[in-house]
Every structure is written in structure tokens, then in C-alpha cells.
Design a protein around this nucleic acid. Structure first.
Lengths: 254, 254
DNA sequence: AATCGAAATCATGTATACAATAATTGATTT
DNA sequence: AAATCAATTATTGTATACATGATTTCGATT
């Protein structure tokens, strides 16, 4: 086994990773502009879950024919951001409560894995950058600037994804983060989540610098799940229609 | 935190999960027949990595126009099974050594997670089914029937995915398994892997029955990674062109 | 008046035609 | 003879036209 571990670590240092974009295809991007624009609208919350995506409307909005629109929708469907119902058109994906909890559970695992690997593999520049981002986020906390902290938060986590030196893991985690984004908008606005999140970042950063993989994994998982308080706020922040769409039993249980 | 955990467990028992297909879209399948057929050909190894996927050839082979072919290729691209190079056509995805190791690392984590959750959540019928599958696989081992064992192996793992009671996790794990499938064909044919795999399954099954999540996770990870011996065989079984395609530094390191 | 049914309308799925770009081949020049 | 450039060919990307199936509306019947 050690030969493999060594090989992997050597590869992580020596190889220049062939970068693939989010869709899993090689770097030279085709006409992804439509996909990206729609994706951003969905992630940013401009297109809310359940919103209908009419092909002809989108076509005339973007001044193209239906064909590229259909291709973009197909890609977004594969990413899970839109639902494609046969002969019934596309809508922005609505995720039920059960599915959301499932996705969050996987998200915690993946982010925890990122933390564990990053503790072992992060380079000095990556750690420096992480500290810079963390410092910037502190300013955002004191200023109470939610938007600024949101951006710092994204940068913090994505830096750790990169530092895991597992490009596939980084992509998968980012994809899942984006897919959950429409349901996380107001998360940081809950009670004391801003400073809470900041303190958790602080502990995670310390674990990474100490190269303590187990601690980094545990702290990161806690940061994302109930122990960090994030999950409760997340549930609380769910829009009514998400909860209502779920199974009656689930609502009763909640 | 406990309220959430309880809610989640209650949900896992009470809710009837809205099933989504592998592409992340709701159950009523559109004309996925093309995607499925191509996917099977790729997973089964009939279409080898690097093989060119000409749209017109595929169109006349399946007796349809290029449009549905393009849609199928786009979906397969999003799944990572084919590479879509702009203006240069589609090929069956070639995965470099580094990326393969990355994917395997994530695969081990996801399967480990499935094991951990299944230990806590598997129902009696699921465990019974798992034992049946395991018994059938024993016959395959004594008979030295690789194909039969391969099928049992898939059934064993997929049953555990389901038993994790996290449908999203199950889907993601299965997707990744399929994506790695073209590179795992000859894996079981290596030296004593057949009985080795069987014994590992035995230990995993015991951990699941004992509801020992930590053990199930650890054993499952070991089953997939170097400790189980699978990784070494996997590396050894890699076709030359995969290794050659990698970065020279990687080859030197290996 | 309400509900069921049928027809019409509209949106999606597929095919085909056209445009644009990359690959290939051939010719010319050094 | 080899290499480079240009022109042709072939394949991908986009638009549009047509077909199929779902939804909605209007009418008739209970």
C-alpha cells in the first residue's frame, strides 16, 4: 500500500493537473455562455426553484434559437439545477426536504474530506492565501457586511478545496455547493451565525496549519452540520414552499 | 443538533423518497434510450476510452437524426463518460492516472460513508438481501466464475448504497462507480482478488449486522483502497495507454 | 351549475438545412 | 525533397420547419 500512497503524493506534487471545467469536460470551452448565465441566475436566486424555463422565452431573451437553449437546459439538468420533465418543459429544480438533508449530509462529508486532505497537502502559498482570506473575513464580521463575508466564505472554502490537491474532489464539492446555493442564501443572516462561522474558520485554519488532518476533517464537518449550528439555521431559513412540498410526515416530524 | 438528527432519522423511516434517475431528473424518463445504450457500451467496454464518437455514424447506427445523438452525448459529457471538444467532436473520456487516483480516493470515501450510514440505517430485509447476495457470490468464488462474481459484487455494493438511506449519496456513488467502470474491468482477474474480495465482503457484512458504523466505514474504505489490495491490482491492470497518457513526471515517479 | 369530453392550441421532441470552423490534402516555393 | 500555405472537404454548431403529445378551453350533457 505504501507504494501507492507514495505514488499518489508524488503525483500531487509533480503533475500539472489537466484542468477540467465544472461539467467534467476538458478545458477548451464550447459555447458555455448560455449555461453559465442561466446557472448564475439560478445560483444567485434570480430564478427561484419551481420557476418555469420556457424554451422560446429564453431563446428570444438570449437572441438565439431554441437549440442552444435546449443544450444549456440539458447540461443544467445533468448538474441537477433544473428538472427536465418529458414533454412538460423545464423548471428550476425544486429539492424536497429529505433530498436537501441528504445532500447536506454528503456535502459535510466531502468538505470534511477536503479539510483532511488539505491538512496533509496544502502548500505554503495556499495556507498564506487562506490566512489572507480569513483576515479579510474578520473585517467583514466587524463591519457586519454580510455580502462581503459571503464572498470571503466562498473563497475560504474553495481555497481548501484546491488545497486538497484532489481536483476531482474539488470539482464535485464545488458542484454540490452550487447546487445547494439557492437554498443557502439567507443562511448567514441568522442570529449570530456570522461570528460563529468566523470562529469555526479560525479553528479549521489552525488545524490545517498544524497539519492535523483528523481535526480539520472533524471541524469542517462540524462547520457544515448541526454541531456548528449551521444546520438549524439552514432548516429555519427554508422558504415555506420547500417545507410544504415535502411529505406530510416530514412536516409533522419537524 | 439532536433535533436535526432525529428529524433526519424520522424522515429516513417515514418518507417515501421521490426517486430521481441518475441524471438527477425526476422519474418520468424522456427518451433516454440513446443515452442509456451509449452509456452501457462505454461502461461495458465496447467503446474504449479515446474512441471517437462521430455524430453521423451514431445517427445512422441508431436510425435517428443527429439532434438526439447530440443530446445524448451532451448528457454523457456531463456525466464525465465522454469528452466534448468544441468543434472537434466527442470521444469516450480518457482519464489520466492522476485523475483516476483522485476519483478512486473520492470513491473510497463515498463507499465508506455508505457503509457507515448503512450500519445505522439498514432494514432487516435489506440485510437479508445482502446475505443472499453474499451467499451467491460464495458460489461464484468456488466455481471461479468471474462474471458471476462481478454481478454479485455490483449487487452487494449497490444494496449497501440503498441501505444508506441517502438517495443522493447512493446516486452519486453509483455514478462514480459507472464512470470508473471502464477502468475496472480486469480488476477481479488479478491474482487472489476474488477470494480476497469475498472475505472483505464478509467482514463488511458482519459490521453492518453488528450496526458498527465505524467498522463498516473503515472496512469499506479498505476494501476499495490500497489496504484491500484492490488499488495495487487496479494500477497493475491499467492499460498501457492510460499510463502513457499521463504526465512524464508521473511515469518517472511510478 | 358542474363535470366530463373533445377539439384546438401551444410547447416540446425530432429532423433537416445552412453556416462556421477545423482537419486534410495538394500545390508551390525554397 | 521537404516544408509551408492555401483550398477543399468533412464535421460540428445553429437555425428553422415539422410532428407529436400535453394542456387548456369551450361546449354539451347530466
Amino acid at each position: 500500500m505504501y507504494t501507492i500512497i507514495d505514488l499518489k503524493n508524488i503525483l500531487n506534487v509533480l503533475t500539472y493537473t489537466q484542468s477540467t471545467d465544472g461539467a467534467g469536460q476538458m478545458s477548451p470551452k464550447r459555447n458555455d455562455t448560455l449555461k453559465v448565465k442561466l446557472e448564475r441566475d439560478i445560483i444567485a436566486g434570480l430564478l427561484k426553484p419551481g420557476a418555469r424555463l420556457d424554451e422560446v422565452s429564453l431563446a428570444e431573451r438570449f437572441q438565439v434559437s431554441r437549440t442552444p437553449i435546449r443544450e444549456a437546459l440539458l447540461q443544467l439538468s445533468s448538474m441537477g439545477l433544473v428538472q427536465l420533465r418529458p414533454r412538460r418543459g423545464a423548471v428550476v429544480a425544486e429539492i424536497g426536504l429529505k433530498e436537501l438533508l441528504d445532500m447536506f449530509e454528503v456535502m459535510a462529508e466531502l468538505e470534511g474530506m477536503c479539510g483532511r486532505l488539505a491538512a496533509r497537502r496544502a502548500t505554503k502559498p495556499e495556507l498564506d492565501h487562506l490566512q489572507d482570506v480569513h483576515a479579510a473575513s474578520e473585517d467583514a464580521v466587524t463591519a457586519g457586511d454580510y455580502d462581503a463575508y459571503y464572498r470571503c466564505n466562498v473563497a475560504f472554502h474553495e481555497t481548501i478545496y484546491q488545497a486538497s490537491r484532489n481536483l476531482f474532489l474539488a470539482e464535485q464539492t464545488m458542484k454540490l455547493r452550487n447546487r445547494l446555493a439557492p437554498y443557502r442564501r439567507s443562511q448567514l443572516h441568522q442570529n449570530g451565525r456570522l461570528s460563529g462561522s468566523f470562529n469555526e474558520h479560525k479553528a479549521i485554519l489552525a488545524a490545517l496549519i498544524a497539519q492535523d488532518g483528523a481535526a480539520a476533517e472533524r471541524l469542517m464537518q462540524g462547520h457544515l452540520t448541526a454541531q456548528g449550528g449551521s444546520m438549524n439555521d439552514f432548516i429555519a431559513s427554508l422558504p415555506d414552499d420547500v417545507l410544504n412540498r415535502s411529505d406530510p410526515a416530514a412536516v409533522a416530524a419537524g
